[in-house]
Measured scan of single mutants.
Amino acid sequence: ENVVSAPMPGKVLRVLVRVGDRVRVGQGLLVLEAMKMENEIPSPRDGVVKRILVKEGEIVDTGQPLIELG
C-alpha cells in the first residue's frame, strides 16, 4: 500500500512529515480534523515519504489520497 488515503472527510490541520522522511508503521503522518476532533493519521507501513498530496488547511473527502510512500 503506497498511498495513504483519508479515512473520513475533514480538514488537514498539520502535516507531520516531509518528503524524504523515513517513517515507521503507526507513526503519525498528518492530523485531520473531523467533527471538531483531531485525528492523527498513521503510516500503514515502514517506508519513505515520496510525495505529500495535500496542504495544511485543505478540505479532503473520504478516500482522497494524502501521502505517497516509497
Rank of each mutant, 00 (worst) to 15 (best):
E1W: 15
E1N: 15
V3C: 14
V4L: 05
S5H: 01
S5I: 05
A6F: 01
A6G: 08
A6D: 05
A6Y: 04
P7N: 12
M8A: 02
M8R: 09
G10T: 03
K11G: 06
K11L: 10
V12K: 15
V12F: 08
L13F: 04
L13D: 07
R14I: 01
R14V: 08
V15S: 01
L16C: 14
L16Q: 09
V17S: 00
V17R: 09
V17I: 01
V17K: 05
R18P: 13
V19D: 10
V19L: 12
G20Q: 03
G20D: 00
G20N: 12
D21M: 13
D21F: 14
R22N: 08
V23L: 11
V23I: 07
V23D: 15
V25F: 07
V25R: 07
G26I: 03
Q27L: 10
Q27R: 12
Q27S: 06
G28V: 00
L29P: 15
L30D: 15
L30S: 13
L30W: 02
V31G: 11
V31W: 08
L32N: 07
L32K: 08
A34Y: 13
A34I: 12
M35G: 11
M35V: 11
K36D: 12
K36M: 00
K36G: 12
K36Q: 04
M37W: 07
M37Q: 01
M37E: 06
N39A: 12
I41H: 02
P42F: 07
S43K: 15
R45D: 01
D46S: 07
G47L: 13
V48C: 15
V48N: 05
K50Q: 09
R51Q: 00
R51Y: 01
R51S: 01
I52W: 09
L53D: 08
L53A: 00
L53P: 03
V54Y: 08
V54W: 02
V54I: 05
V54R: 04
V54F: 07
K55P: 03
E56Y: 09
E56F: 03
G57M: 02
G57T: 04
E58D: 11
E58W: 00
E58Y: 13
V60L: 11
D61V: 00
T62Y: 05
T62I: 08
G63D: 02
G63Q: 12
Q64P: 11
Q64T: 02
Q64G: 02
P65V: 10
P65W: 08
P65E: 01
P65H: 10
L66I: 10
L66G: 05
I67G: 02
E68W: 13
E68A: 15
G70P: 02
G70R: 13
